[in-house]
């Protein structure tokens, strides 16, 4: 297989742009990404803030499952490491979040299943898989901190940060046709496991 050339993505994503992507496409993400992990997801589902109560536009946004490591520098904050966290923890909240807020991209690691994939198909949203543990590399792709929401309430790791990213590398692993690389890998590994466990 020849190496695929990465597709440059601009956020916010249009529905057409999201629906054009396919599993296996390498991408470079440019624009704003909004970090959202456990506490933000719980809040978005249980409190349902209105757009006027939030500093960022969620319609068309790319949410980033990440809890960055920040430090004080030059009178402000600097991102030290910001790789993806395990998306599975957001599984129970994500179908609602995608549909209700019009999210077009989820950046995370490990993939998501079932209802999330169905919500992605219906609403036109894709899953971008980033490299877990590549916190230093990915922090280098964050060019500016545009703002933060719920910093006092949730703390630095759990707040919603708006990061301006340039050429943030990821690969599409769930697309709007319902295809999932994670499901394909699991299916093959299950066949292999059965072979290895057969008497």
């Amino acid at each position: 297989m020849a190496e695929k050339k990465p597709i440059t993505i601009e956020t916010p994503l249009t529905e057409a742009a999201a629906r054009a992507l396919r599993v296996g496409d390498p991408v470079l993400i440019n624009g704003i990404v909004l970090t959202a992990r456990d506490k933000v997801h719980k809040y978005l589902v249980n409190k349902r803030p209105l757009p006027q109560d939030m500093p960022f536009e969620l319609a068309g946004a790319a949410l980033y499952h990440a809890g960055p490591l920040m430090k004080e520098a030059n009178g402000g904050l600097e991102v030290v490491a910001a790789g993806p966290t395990t998306s599975q923890r957001m599984q129970m909240y994500e179908p609602f979040v995608i549909r209700h807020y019009g999210i077009r991209g989820i950046i995370g690691k490990g993939g998501m299943t079932g209802d999330v994939i169905r919500a992605m198909q219906e609403a036109g949203c894709v899953y971008f898989h980033a490299i877990g543990g590549a916190g230093a590399l990915l922090a280098g792709k964050i060019k500016n901190i545009e703002g933060v929401w719920m910093l006092e309430e949730f703390g630095r790791a759990e707040a919603m940060w708006a990061f301006r990213v340039e050429d943030f590398p990821a690969v599409v692993t769930i697309d709007t046709t319902g295809a999932s690389l994670h499901a394909q890998v699991e299916k093959l590994s299950k066949e292999r496991l059965e072979g290895l466990l057969s008497p």
Binding site: L69, G83, G135, A136, A157
Partner: peptide, 8 residues
């Protein structure tokens, strides 16, 4: 850069 590999 003597920076942590991972945010966790």
């Amino acid at each position: 850069a003597s920076k942590p590999l991972c945010q966790d």
